[in-house]
Nucleic acid binder design. Structure first.
Lengths: 138, 138
DNA sequence: CCTAATTGCTCTAGCCACTAGAGGTTCAAG
DNA sequence: CTTGAACCTCTAGTGGCTAGAGCAATTAGG
């Protein structure tokens, strides 16, 4: 049996976050010992590990809830899990390409600076005027 | 003179967001007409445009406040603006490389699915077990 | 076995950047 | 002058935590 602190160390999920997950119903209410402290078993550890990994992969808590529900069903629904994962992949790709546009724009803007001060700052000018932009960021 | 709705249309910033920006002190309290409605001039339009563009480039509201303060100073501090912009560029690059790791991992995971249901789902398995991962995402 | 340090408990409030809704007032077109 | 759109303020909610107050329980050392 793990205390909440031991669970936290084992999974890398912070203690208040574990309590938060319980509060919102992402994990079951933990059993308590005589002194009202939470105790977790191996299954609890694995579920939290699943959540941590999925969070690291950028899944929202709601999506994780869905994935865990699939996992609990008789005959896991691999197809549904795959659809959620593929949607996540698409989201990640969209974010990457948006960020790459920003990268290009910021690169251009920072190259405008000639290090001086006084007069008209081209960096500030470029930030203020979208029409000077090359790409269609946003 | 623009109404708040006209300003919103002109800049693409939503009406409640403009009021929010005023509330937190990002923009000045607008002058009001006889009926207590906000009226904006050309300068107000430009400032909001600056904010919108900077937000689109991923700057935090606090950073934008700093940038606008620089803009207001006598002899704009180009160097300081450039430092803020370069820091932003670094943040964007870091986020891109992190997302690319996630992309690789999700790609790998979604390729595990053979479309079946029942039995052990490899997608769910991969999500649950970080030790199966190739890279070091997070 | 006692004590002190650590860990645990609940509860409230705060973070960012908005968004939504209620319930009322003012403006602009016909 | 009427009607409907746009405006006003105020409160509360979103996601995913984080911080702090003020206690109770556990655990390691002596």
């Amino acid at each position: 049996m793990y205390s909440i602190g031991a669970l936290s160390k084992a999974t890398g999920v912070k203690v208040p976050t574990i309590r938060y997950y319980e509060e919102i119903g992402l994990i079951d209410h933990a059993t308590r010992n005589a002194g009202n402290q939470r105790r977790y078993d191996q299954a609890g550890l694995e579920r939290l590990g699943f959540i941590k990994h999925a969070r690291d992969l950028g899944f929202a808590l709601e999506e994780i809830k869905d994935l865990m529900a699939l996992n609990g069903e008789l005959g896991q629904d691999c197809h549904a899990a795959d659809i959620i994962a593929k949607a996540q992949l698409e989201k990640v790709r969209a974010r990457i390409s948006r960020l790459q546009q920003l990268e290009a724009e910021l690169e251009r803007i920072t190259h405008l600076c000639e290090g001086g001060s006084g007069g008209t700052c081209k960096v500030l000018g470029a930030l203020g005027d979208h029409s000077l932009c090359i790409g269609d960021h946003d």
